[in-house]
Design a protein around this nucleic acid. Structure first.
Lengths: 295, 295
DNA sequence: ACACGTTACGGCAACCGTAAGGATT
DNA sequence: AATCCTTACGGTTGCCGTAACGTGT
């Protein structure tokens, strides 16, 4: 059976591009690296690394092995840390992680002695990592319920329309709901649940709201709106700075009825004293929210 | 770092409920099992197994470690078999796996010398396994596109209305599309994309088509329809038998326009001679379908 | 007394680090 | 010649199986 230490050495070589550097990084002698790679290659019966005097490269087999290797090492490390009460690996989907979670995270770090590992990525990527045993807790904008995991709403964030300062709507203090019909909104990250939210908020009318471009990130959307490419709908917290300094106008919908629920997700079978559980409780306290299934 | 062989031994003990049986299963001496468990426990610094003379049980820690252990061993085995050209692990979502894939699978098995491992589960479960490196290829009814994977339509299957033999529609040879509006259909497996398909086919009218019960499987739906609990919409291949013996009537929609695309999904970076790639090509040949992104 | 897990022990093999050896630039 | 990986070698450690030892039923 595969040896995880050999796999870790393989990753080090792949990263560093050489046996010598890999040896330094992993804190072992250089011949040990040779042995690890050789053992791994023998175990898989293929050559993984093209040796050369000027920079080692991965063979095609090495390239296809790479994602497996990364995953195995991460999953192994996470299993290893399962009962270490001082380590917690948190994943957050980009928008939440960038704009909303930081203060709570800071407060949590100052409050406990845990070594926090934070992974920020797309909502989909974080879901994948949670499922792959690579993180303990995920803070997400959208979650497809799955057996074995619990999802709780920890925060409800208002979505606001953002327009450039010279837009006809810029002076308004609210936007009637039906003004959005027929508008093409600039889309941010795919898979973050905004489409589904529009669907449930506008019902049939949602079909009249087009997503003009899927720009991949809220930062990109903000720049696009500022450049006059269109308008968008984003979490209020994502544009507090721009709204203050005047580079964008963030305007609530009339009645303020459009909110995005943010979830905290973890595995079901956590021990009572698991850091992940502790963190969930920390997030939920003060920010009372009922347990709710994902939409 | 965690040792996968110890983890495998832990799984054996958890399954068998005793060190002695685990030793037999894994083909080692019984004291070796003791050592493996001890090493694992020392590595994690918690007790995993409650020893007893009458059946070992998992401690709470052991229970929370169990899913990690299962996953690690499976992922390790899959990585190990990555370059073994004679092993292929295929996952199929239930309906497809049960009704549609069997003949192709049979033909493939007879044609190649591969050891086939077939996993059949809910669409969601299969997606999870594909992502977790536990299977090489997935045959799915719905796939949320993710980076690192390729999805190709391999088959387009007609959906037909099924009604009990004594239903007023039973004698018809087709059902006008708008008859379904206002009907409550019995739902099968959740997450298999039928809802999304109705959405795109009926557009706004889809809201008038309710999903009455989510029954979890097409088998359950068939029995419920037969029992007069309602009607449903299922893949034609799922009811050929019942349609022939008269226990159900399967009726096309007028124009036959409602089809479900079935996908074959694999990782992107497959080697040219990977069995997974070979299988994909086998599935696609003869059943020509253009490459299409998932809906 | 029996069945089960643990401990003790001896031998073998795996593993690592040091040091020397090729190969490439 | 310098740099890099590989090979050779010795010492240590880890690991396994056999056998003897507690322990609970």
């Amino acid at each position: 059976m595969i040896n995880l230490e050999c796999v870790a050495t393989f990753l080090a070589v792949a990263n560093q591009g050489g046996f010598r550097e890999a040896a330094r990084q992993t804190g072992q002698s250089q011949p040990a690296v040779t042995q690890h790679i050789k053992r791994l290659e023998q175990s898989l019966k293929v050559a993984l690394i093209q040796r050369s005097n000027a920079g080692c490269t991965l063979t095609p087999e090495g390239t296809s092995f790479l994602p497996y290797a990364k995953h195995l090492v991460r999953a192994g490390a996470r299993a290893q840390a399962l009962f270490d009460k001082t380590v917690l690996s948190i994943g957050a989907s980009s928008n939440t992680g960038i704009y909303l979670l930081q203060p709570r995270l800071r407060a949590y770090r100052d409050r406990v002695a845990h070594k926090l590992q934070i992974a920020i990525g797309s909502n989909n990527r974080i879901a994948e990592q949670l499922q792959n045993f690579e993180i303990d807790v995920a803070i997400m904008e959208w979650w497809d319920p799955r057996p074995g995991f619990t999802a709780t709403v920890w925060h409800r964030e208002e979505l606001q329309v953002i327009v450039p300062p010279d837009h006809p709507w810029a002076g308004r203090t609210s936007i009637p709901r039906n003004w959005l019909c027929g508008q093409a909104l600039l889309g941010g990250e795919a898979g973050s649940g905004t489409g589904r939210l529009l669907q449930s908020y506008f019902g049939d009318d949602a079909r009249n709201i087009g997503i003009a471009m899927q720009l991949g990130s809220t930062e990109a959307v903000k720049h696009a709106v500022r450049a006059g490419l269109g308008i968008s709908l984003v979490m209020a917290a994502a544009v507090t700075d721009e709204n203050r300094d005047g580079s964008l106008r963030a305007i609530p919908l009339e009645g303020g009825a459009l909110h995005k629920d943010l979830y905290v997700i973890s595995r079901e079978d956590l021990l009572p004293d698991a850091p992940a559980r502790h963190f969930c409780e920390f997030l939920l306290q003060g920010e009372t929210a009922p347990l709710a299934p994902a939409p």
